[in-house]
Amino acid sequence: MIAYLIRRMLYAIPVLIGVNLLTFALFFVVNTPDDMARVQLGIKRVTPEAIEQWKQRHGYDKPLLYNARAAGMDRFTDTIFFDKSASMFVFDFGYSDDGRSISREIVTRMGPSLSIALPTFLIGLVSYVTFALLMTLFRATALDIVGVTLCVVLMSISGLFYIIGGQFLVSKLWHWVPISGYGGGFDNFRFVLLPIVIGVASGIGASSRWYRTIFLEEIGKDYVRTARAKGVSELGVLFRHVLKNAMIPILTGVVVVIPLLFMGSLLTESFFGIPGLGSYTIDAINAQDFSVVRAMVFLGSVLYIAGLILTDISYTLVDPRVRLS
């Protein structure tokens, strides 16, 4: 088990190097350090000297990937790529184009992101599973058909609609909660309530339907027939037998996103003016701030890999057959 986890963590290193190479390539293939300097300096002040100076100040005065003039390992380490990615591995993300520390920004913005994403995730999971269980319990009845149809309709609606419609209805028409904003303390409840409700609602169609499929698949298995032959009631079958077995496929899709909750939601945060990592990312994209985008890519990848490892661990908790090796 420990050996397996260590192996998985070691595997993360080449994956993260691959991630860095890819983002690095995407950016520098079209955008040479000279171009960056020109953009940053503005049209008027561009002189070859100024460009060189800018590159030197920002650490872009080296070769990109391979330093032919250096010797030994320096050929690979004395490059822009190595300089810019090595620091990533110790979570030092450097500075954004407007000169702020990205790491500090990430730390302060995680809180607001989590305050939306975590409740959305938990309330969502519970309500989706409940809804799916209900449909499974009433399977092949009119209730089930209505439920499934509702799910398909709900999942066919754009996520943007939930947000725009929700804001319009709840905030603008009924004035229940403020349209957007974020504050500290208990008062904050007013701000996060609507984003959470909308987040849960926008996922209900697809997730409930998926869980229902899983439950139905489990309910067709032989051990369920054994349980029924034992005299277990339908509710007992569902809760004592099916639910635990169905957790295995459900966990596959669910646990992997838990670490990614830190990243927040792009849409929700930007619509509701939440100062989290999601809106940070969108702002960076719109400002074409490569340092921030790259930092977020790296962070996202780390969290995703953490999610994969967590998924494996969670299997051992629900499935006695899994002995990681």
Partner: peptide, 24 residues
Amino acid sequence: MRKVRGGRMAMIFQEPGLSLNPVM
């Protein structure tokens, strides 16, 4: 009927590997 199943009348199946709940 539930009281009859497993009570007065019990059943065993062909595939013991599939007929037991794997996570209990």
